[in-house]
């Protein structure tokens, strides 16, 4: 059979010009990313090395802002706290999101479609509206306190806001869809007969879950954890409004330096450190995923 007969039967032949078609296809997105992602990141990196605390009419190259950040225990503690909040949020999302993602992947298409709409719907709301909604729900006169008082679990309303658990819960609510979607996409590719085979070999549900489902879902779990972690550590509206002054995260300090104090070089240096840490974590996870493709 010659190649022309293959083409005649519907197989697309890739000629020399077609071989480079991907460049034309990806060029628009590449240009957008270059202009609106790469160039701003490079500008931010440049600003982080400016001398002094202003970036207009600034010049020179200095490490003063990085030294200020990395030699001050206050900023390092905020950095560690930020990573801790990111990790706690990612784990909470995993606990809540895995069963949902698994159930949706195994659901009939009709139910899966509705489930997806419900999962994605909160992402269409403005973050500020979501956060102010939580302020009302968790307030002393809010829904949660009313339910707790009504059920007799507490005698009078308690303070649920302005602490770490409140921030983690609200962050988890915001980023849960990313975990659900990550898990669902991977579980959807796991052949259900593997679970049936496990049951045939007398493995109970827990053993099947541990030895079959989790190992095969690991790529989805890890990409979900990474997504939620990266989004959480860069949050600033939620910790500012839900956590108050007791919950300090790096995003808030960066916002403060850039917008309030106009100290862009120091804000840029903090952003660069956070960017490096999150990028490193993402690269490690990606490398692990490549070496353990499931």
């Amino acid at each position: 059979m010659n190649s022309s007969s293959v083409a005649a039967r519907g197989t697309v032949r890739v000629g020399p010009s077609g071989r480079y078609a991907w460049i034309a296809l990806t060029a628009p997105l590449a240009i957008v990313l270059l202009l609106f992602l790469v160039v701003p990141i490079l500008s931010l990196l440049r600003a982080s090395f400016f001398e002094g605390d202003r970036s207009f009419n600034a010049s020179g190259v200095s490490l003063e802002h990085y030294l200020r950040f990395l030699t001050d225990s206050y900023y390092l503690n905020v950095m560690l706290d930020t990573l801790g909040y990111g990790l706690a949020t990612a784990l909470l999302c995993l606990v809540l999101g895995f069963p949902t993602g698994y159930a949706l992947a195994r659901a009939k298409p009709h139910w899966r479609r509705w489930g997806l709409i419900i999962i994605i719907l909160p992402l269409t709301l403005s973050l500020v509206i979501v956060v102010f909604g939580w302020l009302v729900v968790l307030g002393r006169q809010g829904l949660v306190n009313q339910v707790l008082v009504f059920t007799g679990l507490i005698d009078k309303p308690i303070r649920l806001l302005f602490n770490s658990p409140a921030v983690i819960i609200v962050l988890a609510q915001q980023f849960l869809p990313f975990m659900v979607l990550s898990v669902m996409s991977v579980v959807g590719h796991i052949d259900p007969t593997l679970e049936q085979a496990s049951a045939n070999l007398r493995a109970n549900r827990w053993t099947t879950f541990r030895k079959v489902i989790v190992p095969l879902s690991l790529p989805g779990i890890l990409s979900g954890l990474t997504l939620v972690f990266v989004l959480s550590v860069s949050a600033f509206i939620t910790p500012r409004l839900i956590g108050g002054h007791r919950v300090q995260m790096l995003g808030s300090l960066i916002y403060e330096q850039i917008i309030v104090l106009l100290n862009w070089p120091f804000g840029a240096a903090m952003s660069a450190v956070l960017f490096t840490v999150t990028l490193t974590i993402t690269l490690i996870v990606n490398k692990w995923l490549k070496s353990h493709p499931g």
Binding site: V136, R140, G142, L161, F162, R240, G244
Partner: peptide, 20 residues
Amino acid sequence: NIVTLTSSTVSLIQLFEQRE
């Protein structure tokens, strides 16, 4: 005595209105 500190005027008003 401080419940919370905020940069947002709207948020502070909400705290007083909800008696937080």
